[in-house]
């Protein structure tokens, strides 16, 4: 396991640079968190120091913050509904395409796989215009259905991750079930899917983080369904006079993600290293 190793000089320089960068990432959050325990008046005079008193009013009143009349608890509920719904839609579609494309030989199979990869590379930002008119026509603006529909695609990066998984899944179990008279649906739903649960969970976590954080879809198609991620941007303009309250809302929006990350850090980072989240 010996490797050509770096000299001490380089190692120390690296640690110094790494530490400085790590501080630049962590300190802003600590600074923000610290300031949530100050009233605005104190924040103006004591921006960088520790709070004089342990002031919890910002946290206690945070649930009354609202955007377009939607209060923070409702924003959380919207975020949860969208995250769960979109993740399920996305897994449903991606798993179906990945399973069929790896386990069955049929005409058009390789074309579909190639398309999936090529299509991801084409810059189609202009299509937001047509999608927006489509949503207007179909009256899908500001509906959960409209948002869930955006997640039903089966050929994105979750597809590629699951493709990698199903490709290595042996068909022998399916074959045994087939001999016992199980149909194709039965094999998929009662034998293959249960075996795929770990992979689905891993991909699901990555996708769920993406959906929780999503700002763009709400901004484009469903501003009335205010989610936490969309809401804090609006609070930024309404709470300019009470920054500690804004900081509290920002902290509240990040905490759920930090908890998920703390629990599934290995799964998240390993799967990112294989397939990437943002693809």
């Amino acid at each position: 396991m010996k490797k050509s190793s770096l000299g001490w000089g380089i190692k120390i320089t690296a640690i110094v640079i790494f530490t400085l960068y790590a501080i630049s990432l962590i300190f802003p959050f600590v600074w923000m968190l610290m300031n949530t325990f100050k009233p605005m008046k104190e924040f103006m005079t004591n921006t960088n120091g520790l709070p004089h008193t342990f002031y919890t009013e910002n946290w206690r009143t945070s649930f009354d913050l609202d955007v377009y009349g939607v209060r923070l608890p409702q924003m959380y509920l919207n975020s949860v509904i969208i995250t769960v719904g979109c993740t399920l839609c996305c897994l449903f579609s991606s798993s179906a395409t990945a399973y069929v494309l790896t386990q069955y030989r049929f005409p058009g199979r390789s074309v579909m796989y190639t398309m999936a990869i090529v299509v991801m590379m084409i810059p189609t930002i202009g299509s937001v215009a047509a999608t927006y008119t489509l949503y207007t026509k179909l009256q899908l603006l500001n509906t959960y259905t409209g948002i869930f529909l955006t997640a039903l695609g089966g050929f994105g990066s979750p597809f590629l991750l699951l493709y990698g998984f199903y490709r290595n899944l042996s068909w022998t179990y399916g074959e045994a079930a087939q001999i016992d008279g199980a149909g194709h649906f039965r094999i998929y739903f009662s034998i293959m899917l249960p075996m795929a649960v770990p992979a689905l969970v891993a991909v699901g976590i990555l996708q769920a983080i993406g959906f929780w954080n999503d700002y763009f879809t709400i901004y484009m198609y469903a501003r009335e369904i205010v989610t936490v991620s969309y809401g804090i941007q609006n609070l930024n303009s309404t709470l300019a006079g009470n920054l500690p309250a804004l900081f509290t809302a920002i902290m509240l929006s990040i905490i759920p993600i930090l908890i998920v990350f703390a629990c599934f850090q290995k799964v998240i980072m390993n799967n990112t290293s294989i397939g990437g989240i943002k693809g």
Partner: peptide, 30 residues
């Protein structure tokens, strides 16, 4: 190349990737 604490740094450096752009830009701005 096995610099000490690499695992820890990797986790910290990854943090911005899991936080929403909407929150992270606000943190950066303030």
């Amino acid at each position: 190349k096995k610099v000490p604490f690499s695992g820890f740094y990797k986790v910290v450096f990854f943090l911005p990737s899991i936080i929403s752009v909407s929150a992270l830009t606000l943190v950066f701005m303030y």
